[in-house]
Design a protein around this nucleic acid. Structure first.
Length: 243
DNA sequence: AATGGCCCAACTCT
DNA sequence: GAGAGTTGGGCCAT
């Protein structure tokens, strides 16, 4: 039996050639993804060429978390997270992942350029980005919601994909566990240069994941731009003290 | 045969 | 103080 070969970039491009998107000036018209409590918008933000240029720059520039910052404890066992993560944003902002607080590194020009490109087509302003790098199809991210308290609940999360295409799955919270409702998952393929906007209240009702895909051998970098409410703003919104 | 989908494990933090 | 969150492995279906 012939062993399955991994796709090269060129073959990837070949596969995408016959979607008619190339003839549109970017970004292509938004495609709305809609379900009960789910509201997303998907578009191509960058051409294939620009996406790979940005990918290459990020490959040399992004500084990822290492050591204990790249590990997580689950059910008493310590694991390396199955991907690499980096955190950039306004000075002082931080992001807590599984109980570990990471302070944002200062913006770098490539990330600012991508951030501003997203702002240009969405009108939304972001002060923070979480970078996830999946070296191949075995790197993945388990099902979760981006519902940290410090996120601005009215701001969409903007997810930019560069590099390999990957499947992306939404599952309704009531469709999980036993005694669940039968709500179909929503599955997307996120291609290089694409932008997925996750609008409220999507993250309240829907979990999302990036499942393992053994056939994928190339890396993908994902940038999720967010708006984090600073502790100052949070403090001013508090109605009572803890006394 | 190999892949994917789904649940579960026990402990920390909110 | 209850409930949610984190990954790998094992079981099952295709």
């Amino acid at each position: 039996m012939k062993k399955r070969e991994c796709l090269e970039w060129s073959e990837d491009d070949e596969m995408n050639k016959d979607d008619d998107l190339a003839e549109f000036p970017l970004p292509v018209p938004w495609q709305n993804v809609d379900a009960e409590g789910l509201d997303c918008d998907y578009a191509l933000l960058f051409t294939k060429e620009e996406a790979y240029r940005l990918f290459d720059r990020l490959e040399t520039e992004v500084v990822y978390l290492t050591g204990h910052e790249a590990r997580v404890q689950v059910y008493g066992k310590v694991h390396d997270i199955p991907r690499k993560q980096a955190v950039y944003g306004e000075p002082g902002l931080n992001y807590t992942y599984s109980g570990v607080k990471h302070f944002a590194r200062q913006w770098i020009p490539t990330l600012e350029y991508i951030r501003d490109s997203v702002t240009k087509v969405t009108g939304q302003v972001f002060n923070f980005v979480l970078v996830n790098r999946y070296k191949d199809g075995l790197d993945h991210m388990g099902e979760h919601r981006d519902n940290e308290r410090e996120l601005d609940p009215l701001c969409p999360i903007a997810s930019v994909s560069l590099g390999a295409s990957r499947d992306f799955v939404f599952r309704h919270r009531d469709a999980r566990g036993r005694g669940r409702r039968r709500i179909e998952p929503v599955k997307l393929q996120l291609v290089s240069g694409s932008l997925l906007l996750m609008n409220p209240p999507t993250n309240t009702y829907w979990y999302h994941s990036l499942p393992r895909r053994r056939a994928v051998c190339q890396p993908r970098i994902n940038l999720t731009f967010r708006r984090i409410i600073s502790s100052d703003e949070k403090g001013s919104l508090m109605t009572t003290s803890t006394s």
